[in-house]
């Protein structure tokens, strides 16, 4: 038995608040259990529901919520010690690993970890991008690579959210451009099966890269074709969206094969097996991978970068073949 009316209504109000606001009961159901205070209870619960509704409509800006989540995840990343033991070392990756170690030593041990949280307006951002490329290099299989690209795209989205909230349009553009390239890479991987029929036979060495052609398409029309080595003909029998391809012709097993840019870049080790200078070749392929990742897929820089890398690669082939002989 409650001694005071006020005490009683405080307790009953609290009970009804739980029943109505938390358990979802109607006001009428609750006040039916306390008929002696029904009018007062109804009036207080009406105010409570209005208050609850008003409070519930207070919402944070979505970009703030996303940015804070990103900050917290970054903090956790820093707290987690990187685990390098999971790498499955292969002899052929030793030069790349050594290069990575040198970069780490030169840049200081914590640089890469610190860079992992950097934004496009931070000087360490390039280290972050280089670290992503290194991760790609050590990731094998199309599906695994596509998943990694997908993670990087998520990271770009976070960067865009943070930079947009800081009104840093230049940095937003930078992240957007990189994200677009990474989305393109996912597309490239998804097209892998369609290109598989063009893959040269396994085994044997690539003897030469004879032509490199850049072709720009809009719809089914070829609007521009520039051959960097020798003339090459492109047909326009398939309908394609506007994009630029780089077609590389390689000689292998006494026959020529035309390989489009993405396939050449993505599956290079198949073309260079059985050479005595495998380590050098692998390193050069890594250069191509990095160039590919760094250059915009539709710019002249892309083709120039690839060409430079291929030129070095061709020379190395000759050196490698010379060593064999």
């Amino acid at each position: 038995m409650f001694k005071k009316k006020e005490n009683y209504i405080e307790k009953v109000l609290d009970i009804c608040l739980d029943r109505v606001l938390i358990e979802g009961e109607s006001i009428e159901d609750c006040i039916a259990d306390y008929p002696e205070y029904s009018d007062e209870l109804k009036s207080l619960l009406d105010v409570s529901i209005k208050t609850q509704n008003a409070v519930s409509s207070v919402e944070a800006r979505p970009d703030f919520k996303a940015r804070l989540k990103y900050i917290l995840e970054s903090e956790m990343n820093q707290a987690n010690t990187p685990k390098l033991s999971s790498f499955k070392w292969k002899f052929q990756w030793v030069p790349v690993a050594l290069s990575l170690c040198i970069v780490l030593l030169l840049s200081g041990g914590g640089t890469v970890a610190a860079a992992s949280n950097s934004m496009p307006d931070n000087p360490l951002y390039n280290v972050k991008l280089a670290s992503e490329k290194a991760q790609l290099f050590f990731t094998f299989g199309d599906e695994a690579k596509a998943n990694l690209y997908s993670e990087f795209v998520t990271e770009r989205v976070n960067e865009i959210v943070v930079m947009a909230s800081a009104n840093n349009i230049k940095a937003v553009d930078k992240s957007s451009e990189i994200m677009q390239n990474q989305l393109n890479m996912i597309d490239v991987i998804s097209q892998e099966k369609q290109l598989a029929t063009q893959t040269p036979p396994e085994g044997g060495s690539v003897l030469a890269i004879t032509t490199v052609t850049e072709t720009t398409w809009i719809g089914s029309e070829e609007i521009n074709s520039s051959d960097k080595h020798t003339t090459s003909t492109q047909t326009t029998d398939t309908v394609r969206p506007a994009f630029t391809t780089v077609t590389i012709t390689v000689v292998k097993g006494g026959e020529e094969y035309q390989v489009e840019n993405e396939q050449f870049v993505r599956t290079p080790p198949e073309y260079v097996t059985n050479t005595s200078n495998q380590l050098l070749i692998d390193t050069l392929y890594n250069d191509i991978l990095i160039l590919y990742g760094a250059a915009a897929s539709n710019s002249g820089l892309f083709l120039e970068s690839i060409l430079q890398a291929i030129e070095v690669l061709e020379n190395s082939y000759y050196v490698a073949l010379g060593n064999v002989q």
Binding site: E10, L13, D14, L44, V47
Partner: peptide, 19 residues
């Protein structure tokens, strides 16, 4: 808990009046 229930009641009564 009793003190908080009392505060809760008085707050809602005050809000009702103010609103």
């Amino acid at each position: 808990q009793g003190a908080v229930k009392a505060l809760q009641h008085s707050a809602i009564v005050a809000l009702r009046k103010l609103m």
